Simulated scan of single mutants.
Amino acid sequence: MRHLRPSVDVQITTAMDPFSIAAGVVGIAAPTLHCVQVLLEDLQNIADAPNAVKALTNDLQSVDLALVSVQAVTDSQWKLLGDAVTAQSKAAITCCKTSCERFKTSLDRWTRHSTDGTLSWRDRATLGVFRQGHIKSVSEQLQNCNITLTSVASIATLHISLQQTQTAEEIKTMISTKETTVNDAIAATNDLSAEISAQLETLTLAEPDEGETDADQTATTKQVAMEKKALAESRKVLEGLLSVIQTAAANAQACQGPTVTFGSYNQGQQVGVNSGTISATFGGRG
């Protein structure tokens, strides 16, 4: 469409220490956020967009929020997450940026017959029928990116949350909840990866559909391949986060030490054998 802006290679500078851990992530997160916002604006400017395209705007908005939350992670929190998770997060964000840039290029080509935010009948058919597989792949990748980056931001604050938690039971519940969330995300990523691998094999062997050019089929195949790569990067991030959770749990348990609990009479003196720090509470008669 004529109103759509061309793709640009954006360089965004920050005042952050270039040698800090966070600077490396922000260095890719900022231009990725810009790409997401440009693509989102382009899609929103299509007044009569097909439902699949409208749904894609929701995915972009979610990734926008996730990227902002990742940018808020402090340098000290990245250090707690570790070098591996930091590097893997950068790789996952890079995949998202590349996919958005490629999709914008395809979108410009698919809507070249339209003007002023209104799709021509030819472009409407292109988006509504022939490009469903491409759009679906981008949507899945954005959804996975959102889950991954939201998990990174959530686990980044885990250590502080554990320090503020008062009881062993609260710590246990918090750790269990985080582990379940990340494990569920890993399982979903594995399932989708298997599905995408099969789809990619089919696309590689298939002939272009009627009304589809070789260039369009190549673009779709490249997008699905990018989705497969992005899923692999996300799985690495999530597995790294699971390790961070387990380490945080062990540290919290070691710092808290055992607790002595008195019986139902809540009085008198009880003696046990203990090799660590004791936290005891004495009370009067009930």
Rank of each mutant, 00 (worst) to 15 (best):
M1L: 11
T13E: 08
A15L: 12
D17H: 09
G24H: 12
A29H: 03
H34M: 09
L40T: 10
E41M: 13
Q44L: 15
A55P: 02
T57M: 03
A66I: 09
T74H: 02
Q77W: 11
W78Y: 10
K79V: 12
L80R: 12
D83G: 02
T86F: 08
Q88M: 03
Q88I: 10
K90M: 12
A92T: 11
I93P: 00
C95H: 15
R102Y: 02
R102N: 10
T105W: 01
S106R: 06
W110M: 08
H113W: 00
G117T: 07
T118K: 11
T118Q: 05
S120T: 14
A125Q: 14
T126Q: 15
L127T: 08
L127V: 02
G128I: 09
V129I: 15
V129N: 06
F130T: 08
R131A: 11
H134N: 00
I135C: 01
I135Q: 00
K136I: 12
S137H: 05
S137Q: 05
S139N: 06
Q141K: 07
T150P: 04
V152M: 04
A153F: 09
S154A: 09
A156M: 01
H159D: 09
I160H: 13
S161K: 13
L162Q: 08
Q166C: 03
A168K: 04
A168M: 01
T173D: 14
K178F: 03
K178A: 14
V182H: 00
A194S: 09
L200R: 12
T202Q: 07
P208A: 01
G211K: 05
A215C: 02
K222D: 10
Q223M: 12
K229D: 03
E233Q: 15
R235L: 11
R235T: 08
V244D: 00
A248W: 05
A249W: 03
Q253C: 03
G257A: 10
T261N: 10
T261E: 08
F262L: 11
S264M: 08
Q267M: 08
Q267Y: 12
Q269Y: 05
S275N: 03
S279G: 07
A280P: 09
R285L: 11
